[in-house]
Simulated assay, not measured.
Amino acid sequence: MEKLLDVENVSISFIQYTQGLNQRDLKVITDLTLDVSEGEILAVLGSSGSGKSLLAHAILGILPENANLNGKIKYKGKELSQKDKEEIRGKDIALIPQSVNFLDPLMKISDQAIGHTENDEEKKDKKTKQREIFQHYNLGPEVDEMYPFQLSGGMARRVLV
C-alpha cells in the first residue's frame, strides 16, 4: 500500500522566556515518525497538552510563528513546503476540531474566514472564495453575517474545516 502521509522525525519546539530575557527551548514533540497509508485510519491519542493538535497544525502548515519545526512531512511521496500545505489544506487534508472555541465570539463568521486584507479588492476576492467554499459545505449566505453563538455545532465545525 502506498503511503498517503509520511511524517519523518518531526520535532516541534518553542523558545520560552524565563526570568526576564533568559531563554529555554520548550520541546513539545520530539522525533515523531508515523505514516498513514491510503484507506488506513489512524488515531492519535495523548493527554491534554501532549501535542496532538500541534502535530495536526504542523501537517496543515498553521503552526504559530514562534514554533520551530524540524523533520519532513510528505504527502503522496512529496515533501510539503508551506505553499504545498496551503494548497492541500481543506481540499485533501482537513482538521475537524473537537471544540469550536477557535471561533472569535465577537466577530462575524465571514470576517473570520476571510481574515486580514490589505485593500477592498483583496477583500472582495477573498469573500468570493469564502462563499464558494461555504457553499461546498452547505453553508448558506446567511451564515456569513452570523456570530459563532448563532451556529449549530455542526455548522461551526464546517466553518472551521
Rank of each mutant, 00 (worst) to 15 (best):
residue 81 S to Y: 06
residue 109 I to S: 05
residue 45 L to A: 15
residue 145 E to P: 05
residue 24 R to M: 14
residue 73 I to K: 01
residue 37 S to H: 14
residue 104 D to A: 07
residue 49 G to C: 05
residue 51 G to H: 03
residue 88 I to A: 02
residue 143 V to T: 14
residue 20 G to E: 06
residue 130 Q to I: 04
residue 161 V to Q: 13
residue 125 D to C: 08
residue 142 E to D: 14
residue 46 G to L: 08
residue 142 E to C: 08
residue 161 V to P: 13
residue 11 S to F: 01
residue 152 S to R: 07
residue 51 G to S: 00
residue 60 L to C: 01
residue 107 M to G: 10
residue 20 G to K: 04
residue 64 P to F: 10
residue 106 L to T: 13
residue 134 F to K: 01
residue 54 L to S: 03
residue 130 Q to Y: 04
residue 111 D to L: 03
residue 128 T to M: 10
residue 74 K to I: 00
residue 139 L to Y: 05
residue 35 D to Y: 12
residue 77 G to Y: 11
residue 33 T to M: 08
residue 28 V to C: 07
residue 106 L to A: 12
residue 5 L to S: 01
residue 102 F to L: 15
residue 147 Y to R: 03
residue 10 V to E: 03
residue 140 G to Y: 13
residue 128 T to I: 14
residue 112 Q to Y: 02
residue 89 R to E: 06
residue 125 D to I: 14
residue 95 L to I: 09
residue 136 H to Q: 14
residue 139 L to H: 06
residue 41 I to L: 10
residue 114 I to T: 09
residue 28 V to P: 08
residue 95 L to K: 04
residue 45 L to W: 12
residue 137 Y to L: 15
residue 32 L to M: 12
residue 94 A to H: 11
residue 12 I to D: 02
residue 84 D to T: 02
residue 16 Q to L: 14
residue 118 E to N: 14
residue 150 Q to K: 10
residue 96 I to D: 15
residue 161 V to T: 13
residue 59 I to R: 01
residue 123 K to A: 06
residue 160 L to T: 00
residue 97 P to W: 07
residue 9 N to D: 13
residue 4 L to G: 03
residue 104 D to H: 06
residue 62 I to W: 03
residue 9 N to C: 11
residue 150 Q to L: 02
residue 76 K to P: 08
residue 119 N to M: 10
residue 131 R to P: 00
residue 141 P to S: 14
residue 106 L to K: 09
residue 130 Q to N: 15
residue 157 R to A: 09
residue 151 L to N: 12
residue 134 F to Q: 07
residue 104 D to I: 04
residue 129 K to E: 09
residue 18 T to Q: 05
residue 98 Q to F: 05
residue 49 G to Q: 07
residue 52 K to R: 03
residue 161 V to G: 11
residue 52 K to S: 00
residue 24 R to N: 11
residue 113 A to P: 03
residue 36 V to D: 01
residue 94 A to K: 10
residue 85 K to R: 09
residue 27 K to H: 09
residue 64 P to A: 14
residue 43 A to C: 15
residue 74 K to L: 13
residue 89 R to L: 03
residue 116 H to R: 11
residue 138 N to W: 00
residue 54 L to M: 08
residue 10 V to S: 09
residue 126 K to E: 04
residue 36 V to S: 01
residue 97 P to F: 13
residue 143 V to R: 09
residue 99 S to M: 10
residue 118 E to R: 12
residue 8 E to D: 12
residue 105 P to V: 02
residue 135 Q to C: 07
residue 101 N to E: 12
residue 64 P to E: 13
residue 39 G to P: 01
residue 52 K to A: 02
residue 133 I to G: 04
residue 129 K to L: 11
residue 82 Q to T: 00
residue 78 K to T: 04
residue 102 F to T: 05
residue 67 A to L: 03
residue 60 L to F: 00
residue 17 Y to A: 06
residue 26 L to R: 09
residue 145 E to M: 05
residue 107 M to R: 06
residue 65 E to C: 08
residue 122 E to N: 09
